[in-house]
């Protein structure tokens, strides 16, 4: 069907705003029914109007040996209303209000660079590539706050196998969606878009590196980086790029957005490290999101507590220099 000019479209064919909103309400209601099994407290969050616009699907998961134990997950409400996602505004609550504009279907992820051949994966294919695991991870933001999030996904190394990288591939670059129509806030933020992040190949291969599709038993809400993102629990949150559209295997260290913007504040590695301060604040402590204000302060752990799994990748490296 040819794409017609707007004036050619009879007004009878245009969905009215109220119909569109009704449709959304219907979908939200359907989603709410679908997740009723998740528990009453969570249902209340999903049914509240703020979340209702981000209709999500329930996901089946298997347990994971990489899941963090002995921690209490942050509430769904906080995880979905306190976000840094500058494509949808710089305020913490902006993404939850604005990310409904993000169209996550159809969605595909392109794979390029030092690979046997270029590939493109549909989101459905990605989600079926490997059994989805529930992994509870600590999440530490460079701004000195932290959460505990029950993510859903599988080790990124499983995906790398499907990409068939060449031996010349030494780094992986993650590129997020840049779409002025869905993310008009991009224009008001002085960063070099699209958002780009990167890892050394061994970091990308580490089993903790999670190719992530959901949280709290359901697909990712838009504001949390739908439909697919990367999660790196031992690094500051900004390393975990959201809404990925392209993954490149490259020879040299790729450009990374925050590092480019302020290289003295955000290093390429950005491993969680209480001994290396951000130039503007200490990283020794973090504010636990959802905790009462008089007991929100808790000490930050080296590698965010994942040293056993990741420290060996950095032996012999000066972590003060390579922050």
């Amino acid at each position: 069907m040819p794409i017609r000019k707007p004036s050619d479209i009879p007004s009878s064919e245009i969905t009215t705003k109220s119909d569109y909103m009704d449709r959304r309400k219907f979908m939200a209601a359907a989603a709410a029914v679908g997740v009723a099994a998740l528990g009453a407290d969570r249902l209340e969050n999903i049914a509240s109007p703020r979340e209702a616009v981000h209709a999500t699907e329930k996901l089946a998961t298997v347990p994971s040996k990489y899941s963090t134990t002995g921690v209490t997950p942050t509430s769904f409400e906080d995880i979905t209303t306190y976000n840094n996602f500058y494509e949808f505004g710089t305020g913490k609550a902006d993404p939850s209000r604005n990310a409904w504009r993000l169209k996550t279907s159809p969605w595909s992820v392109k794979v390029e660079g030092e690979v046997k051949s270029k590939k493109e994966f549909d989101i459905d294919a990605l989600m079926k590539m490997h059994p989805l695991e529930e992994r509870v991870y600590r999440h530490r933001c460079v701004e000195a706050w932290s959460m505990v999030i029950p993510w859903i996904g599988y080790s990124f190394s499983e995906f790398i196998k499907q990409c068939e990288p060449l031996s010349s591939a030494r780094y992986v670059q993650f590129i997020s969606l840049e779409n002025m129509k869905e993310e008009p806030w991009i224009a008001s933020v002085n960063l070099d878009w699209p958002y780009s992040e990167g890892l050394r190949m061994d970091e990308a291969m580490n089993p903790l590196t999670l190719f992530t599709f959901g949280l709290y038993g359901q697909t990712l809400p838009n504001q949390d980086g739908a439909p697919v993102r990367i999660v790196l629990p031992w690094k500051y949150g900004f390393k975990s790029a959201k809404s990925l559209v392209k993954i490149r295997f490259v020879k040299r260290q790729p450009r990374t957005t925050w590092n480019e913007s302020a290289p003295n504040e955000y290093g390429f590695y950005s491993n969680v490290n209480p001994n290396v301060d951000h130039p503007r604040w200490s990283q020794k402590y973090e504010r636990v999101i959802g905790a009462p204000f008089w007991k929100a302060r808790q000490p930050t752990l080296m590698f965010n507590g994942y040293g056993d799994q990741v420290a060996s990748m950095y032996t012999g490296m000066n972590l003060r220099k390579n922050f």
Partner: peptide
């Protein structure tokens, strides 16, 4: 907000 627990997810930052 303190008494009604509505200081938001990061109450320290809100204050």
């Amino acid at each position: 907000q303190g008494f009604t627990n509505t200081l938001g997810p990061d109450p320290v930052a809100t204050i």
